[in-house]
């Protein structure tokens, strides 16, 4: 009887010992937002466009470099072939 009276007199939820701490995390619907949806959306869209823009820029730069090299090689080849065709003609003269 004495012990029951003592238990009723205990203050509830004010002073907890280390053993009273929760030992499991329980999920709750509609809890406090931890991740900003707006920020995740912006990061996602930025990453998507970065992938596309990077590929397009790299492709155009490489294409321009290849085109320059092709035109220089073509002109060098045509010069060399022109000189070769002129050389036998001069030899006959």
């Amino acid at each position: 009887m004495k012990s029951l009276f003592f238990m009723q007199a205990q203050p509830t939820g004010t002073s907890q010992s280390a053993d009273d701490r929760s030992q499991a995390f329980k999920p709750v619907q509609g809890g406090t937002e931890l991740q900003s949806g707006e920020r995740l959306l912006v990061i996602s869209y930025m990453a998507i466009w970065l992938c596309v823009v990077a590929l397009v820029i790299v492709s155009f730069r490489k294409q321009a470099r290849i085109d320059r090299r092709i035109s220089s090689l073509e002109s060098a080849l045509s010069r060399a072939r022109g000189e070769k065709s002129e050389a036998p003609a001069r030899g006959k003269d």
Partner: peptide
């Protein structure tokens, strides 16, 4: 389309470099 066009240009460049080697020119 963009990448395939570039790959075909790379192939053409390789052919031209081979021709240039056969002609004995560096190309630069």
């Amino acid at each position: 389309w963009l990448r395939a066009k570039m790959e075909l240009s790379v192939s053409k460049l390789a052919e031209l470099e081979q021709e240039a080697l056969e002609e004995g020119i560096g190309g630069d």
